[in-house]
Amino acid sequence: MSKKCNPELDAAYMMAQLQSLLAIPSPSGFCMRIMGYMEEEAEKLGYSLEQTPKGTGIITIPGQDDSQTIGISAHVDTLGAMVRSIKGNGMLRFTPIGGYAMATVEGEYCMIHTRDGHEYEGTVLTTHPSVHVYSDARDMKREEANMEIRIDEMVSSKEDTEKLGISVGDFISWDPRTRMLDNGWIKSRHLDDKACVASVLGLMEWLKRENKTPAHTLKIIISTYEEVGHGSSYLPADITELLAVDMGALGDDLSGSEQNVSICAKDSSGPYDYGMTTKLIELAKREELPYAVDIYPYYGSDASAALRGGSNIRAALLGPGVHASHGMERTHKDAVVNTAALLLAYVMTPIH
């Protein structure tokens, strides 16, 4: 591992891709549009994306050695919600998609996507939203039963809302509120995991632009159900190693930062492969990339899903550090680019 890659990764390309990805609504199970975007972008780069019946995307890049196949997974699905019921006053009760605290979506703008193709704006509120009216407005528990969505249409009854074509089971997406600042900070919902997808696209762009071939055949897995726990539960049988690319958690007794590449040694599913994790650490040192090794006690990944699904693989996890995960998230451009650089070093280094 003595040779440094020194890649000239295209940071501007990754930032443009991230902005485009964040603008596409894609709560788990509602990823048709964003997968169409991924297919088009793969084709622009000279690759092809095939979809499984489940909706997972697979991009295959031939390697110098095809005796082993490495998988890299990232997910395009995000947190969101679904219409649970239409209330008598025309507002919507919703059920969450993914694991987030209700307080993180209070006051959020959202979009209701009907099954006949219409979209309506709304706002998430508590059922007692005004301190001028309700004595418990500040103190009431932020839980599903106490939350509702106010629709920005002339509705005051269940029948009014039904006439819009809104019904139980319609998907709801959160406004990402993306800001990409000149000083490199990126704040938005859904950096988990679209920041990582941007890093993976940056890797693909470099391989094509530089006409480079990975050390081993590479299969890039774009999953669409990670936030609900079964994103990459199916993997092609020829994959022997899976490197999940997902956001690095930051906080209490964790050493990562929003500029670092985070390498996860263990999460709620248990320890990741010793050899793969060690290799990532050695490559980060070789490439002089800022990194941190951490433990995530309340976290699972596509690699976790693949292992629980019975895949006979080695697995590891890395990604850019993201603050306030499953809330109003923030990372830095450097972390996204450095993640792509570590991915590149990994796929260009033969397995021994």
Results as ranks from 00 to 15, higher is better:
K4D: 06
C5Q: 15
E8F: 07
E8P: 05
Y13N: 09
Y13P: 08
M14P: 08
Q19G: 10
L22V: 10
L22W: 04
I24K: 03
S28C: 09
G36M: 08
M38E: 11
M38C: 14
A42N: 11
L45H: 10
L45S: 10
S48Q: 13
E50L: 07
Q51E: 13
K54V: 11
K54R: 14
G57R: 01
G57S: 06
I58L: 14
I59V: 14
I61V: 15
G63S: 07
G63A: 06
Q64M: 12
T69P: 02
G71C: 09
S73W: 00
H75G: 11
H75L: 04
V83S: 00
R84Q: 15
G88L: 11
N89V: 02
F94H: 01
P96V: 03
G98D: 03
E106C: 05
T114R: 02
D116M: 11
E119P: 00
Y120Q: 03
T123I: 15
V124S: 00
T126L: 07
T126F: 00
P129M: 08
V131S: 13
V133L: 13
Y134P: 01
S135Q: 11
K141T: 10
I149E: 00
S156G: 06
D160E: 08
T161N: 09
K163W: 04
L164I: 04
G165Q: 06
I166Q: 04
S173P: 03
M180L: 13
D182P: 01
H190L: 03
A195L: 10
V197T: 11
V197R: 03
L201G: 01
L201A: 05
M204G: 04
R209W: 02
R209Q: 14
E210C: 10
P214K: 13
T217M: 08
I221N: 13
S223D: 14
Y225P: 06
E226D: 15
S232R: 09
Y234M: 14
L235R: 03
I239N: 02
T240L: 09
A244F: 06
G248I: 14
G256C: 13
E258L: 07
Q259K: 15
D267A: 09
G270Q: 13
G275I: 00
G275E: 07
G275W: 02
R286A: 12
E288C: 10
A292V: 12
V293Y: 00
P297V: 06
P297T: 02
Y298C: 04
Y299E: 05
Y299N: 06
G300I: 05
A303E: 03
S304W: 10
A306I: 11
N312Q: 12
R314F: 04
L318I: 13
G319C: 07
P320S: 12
P320I: 11
H323F: 12
M328N: 07
M328R: 11
M328E: 01
E329G: 00
V336G: 01
T339R: 02
T339D: 01
A341V: 12
A341W: 00
V347D: 04
